[in-house]
Nucleic acid binder design. Structure first.
Lengths: 245, 245, 245, 245
DNA sequence: CATGAATGAGTGTTCATTCAT
DNA sequence: AATGAATGAACACTCATTCAT
């Protein structure tokens, strides 16, 4: 196709042109720029397709044929970019977790208001940036496959979980220092606060996809925040009878 | 059976006869019992083995050979009791969910004290009865495989999830009626309260099994309860400055 | 069951009786006469069941489970009488071919009338004695499995085919000697005469069992005989314009 | 395709260019052709191998491993072309029955001579075209497996048997109309005439393959024709004392 | 004798991986 | 770079055979 386009604009090719062409063809038809652009997009297209299928069927239940055809390429092509199914899996995980936590960190560092406001901000931002994204499939995928890929699980843990918890820890610490939050057991509180967020993501890609009584994400988060902020509120300081903000 | 019939029709046997008979028949009778017991125990042994492996590796990743050998039988034997891998999976799920929710329901109905105490009781009982059991693998398994077995997911949802939520709903309703809990959005609150429990179980059989910074279940639950009860406490009623019990 | 019947008629058993009984039981409950009779019938019941199934599904396609349950026994019992599936198959063949050819031979030897009449008699007797019997399944079975059991095929060939051909040969010879039949190539004629009989049997247990436009066996045989006798009739001798008898 | 498009738009290429191109591309083009040819030939190679083995061992007794290795490929390759063992079986049957009956029909329609000659021609042609071919295994295979594949048996019946009988019927009708043949029962006569042909094919792939006293096909057919034509000859018309031709 | 639970070798089928083009 | 035909190891499932009872 490419070649046809190329020669359609050169109806009077002479021998030298042909030699050039042949040289190109001998390189197994080297790809012009349009292809080039796609070529760079390929890995991302493949991991995107793979993410969806891994999340849906699990690692072992996913066929590379399906991944390839969902990405619009042949199965062989997949192996140009990934050495094995496992390598693809790892790429899916690693690609999925890179970007977001940086922003969270910036958010925390740059924030000027109260810890409550910051926590609210974090939770509210989590939904559009992760929870409502395909990225939200990652937690479910990682939970499902952790024991089949322990090293990867550790990597995920250290890169995502630990850093996510760091964000919450920073907020809690700030709130407790300022007296806005009552003193609580730090580490377990972090887990308890995060659990509903994670469960929401996991649910969405598991039971929620089957027997979904439509889930109102916004309401769920509002309730979550409400409960957590109430639960953290320092009774000695906060004005009584008022919802903590 | 034959033997039983035989002694029922001979009521005039005296002790010595029985000794003779018993000695003679011992190797005809006693071993069948062992066999019998084994035969009846087999399905449970197999589903137990299967549960462990399904939870660990996922459905597709589990080899029936492994299930069989973990149960101490050959692969063929497995097929005496289950028609297919899928049938085994379904049996694992169904067998796992039968027993516990009844007790929960009784607990709620029979409780005399405050809603807070009841909620505390529920959460505290959940751990030894489910969370600390192999049954706790079920949520993780179901989350992982829901989309591969949608009908089963619906069954699980209706049988376990819905009924579990009913328990919490009953408690919340009681507390809100009595004024012990402040008014909150019922349905989402239920989910938010349950999420940390479920996450704890899921975690235990996923990332927790790999990168477990030893998880202190008791402390986690104490914090969870603390946060929830604080968060639900009715500020108009509860004595200020005091941790809700 | 047997035992129950036995002790129901002896409500006042004393010790010695019990010793006798126990001795019997130690022999693993020796079988009374009713059983005995069945015991002798067992092999025949089993081969009968096996014949049907082998004919229907072929050797490899037949499950011993099915054979046993069609004969009303358990699979283990089958192995009390036959060492292996192959042994059962051989028994089926051997049992099926024993009886009939003797009679044919007697028929030929004792016959006084014309060769035509004898041939007609043979063909007509073939139907009720073999063709309309389960035995007619044997040719189909043997054809199907000959190459899987060459030695058995040779045995069958020598025992059935050769002897069957001998019968026809004797008749043809007699007819040719007497001038009733015109001279023909003996050996191939025998085959050509037998072929429709065999095909009829084979058909019945193969395509005829599926897409049977109801097959009128009598008419088929009449036509066969008619064609053969016409075809063999000696034009120099037979009264012209008259159907040969 | 690319290459073709390329040269279509370059009509001014001269011979030398083409030589260059051909040399360069030779290893890009010529080998695909070989592949292509193989790829298209594969199904036929596979069904050919399968036919042999199915005829020899029966459907259930044939291992796909053997089919594949007889065709010179691996077992997996077989599944690129056939969905299942059963699909392969059906392909074997369907592929085997397509071609020959058309010719027979043409033969009958175009024939000018006597019905006897036509019948002789049909029978004589049958041997080199079918009887002496691997196709002759089909009847044996179909007989053996009819009851395991009833729908296929019906298809075979309607496509092969019925049409084969139509050919004979047409000949008989012609001969009876012309007075060449005496009046006989049409339908059963067809069967009786065909039976020796079919038996010959079946025999060849069953007992004949084991205990073959070498079978003289030509002589067998001559006798068959001789007997049939004598048997059909109209005594009112045919010159007496003369073998019908 | 009779049973049927247990076995494990064998086979149909799938699918990750390779490689010639 | 891309394809897809080919491979073969792996696994679900079957069934002839054994054996404890």
């Amino acid at each position: 196709m490419t070649i046809i386009g190329l020669d359609e604009s050169n109806r009077s090719l002479i021998l030298t042109d042909w030699l050039v062409i042949n040289l190109c063809l001998m390189n197994l038809i080297s790809q012009p720029h349009i292809r080039q652009r796609r070529k760079e997009a390929r890995p991302a297209e493949l991991t995107a397709a793979a993410l969806e299928l891994f999340v849906e069927k699990g690692f072992a239940g996913t066929r590379l044929d399906d991944v390839a055809s969902r990405a619009g390429v042949s199965k062989g092509t997949l192996y140009l970019y990934f050495d094995s199914k496992e390598a693809l899996f790892k790429a899916v995980i690693q690609e999925g977790i890179v970007p977001v936590l940086e922003e969270g960190s910036d958010l925390v560092d740059g924030h000027k208001g109260s810890a409550s406001q910051l926590l609210r901000l974090m939770v509210e931002e989590w939904w559009p940036r992760i929870g409502d994204t395909h990225l939200a499939g990652l937690p479910k995928l990682m939970m499902s496959e952790a024991r089949n890929f322990p090293e990867l699980a550790i990597y995920y843990h250290d890169t995502v979980i630990v850093r996510g918890k760091n964000l919450i820890r920073a907020i809690l610490k700030r709130g407790m220092v300022s007296g806005e939050f009552r003193p609580v057991d730090m580490e377990t509180t972090i887990d308890v606060i995060l659990a509903p967020l994670l469960m929401q993501a996991i649910w969405r890609y598991s039971l929620g996809a089957c027997c979904g009584t439509r889930h109102d994400a916004k309401r769920y988060q509002r309730t979550h925040l409400d409960l957590v902020l109430y639960g953290l509120a320092n009774p000695d300081q906060a004005p009584k009878g008022k919802t903590p903000k």
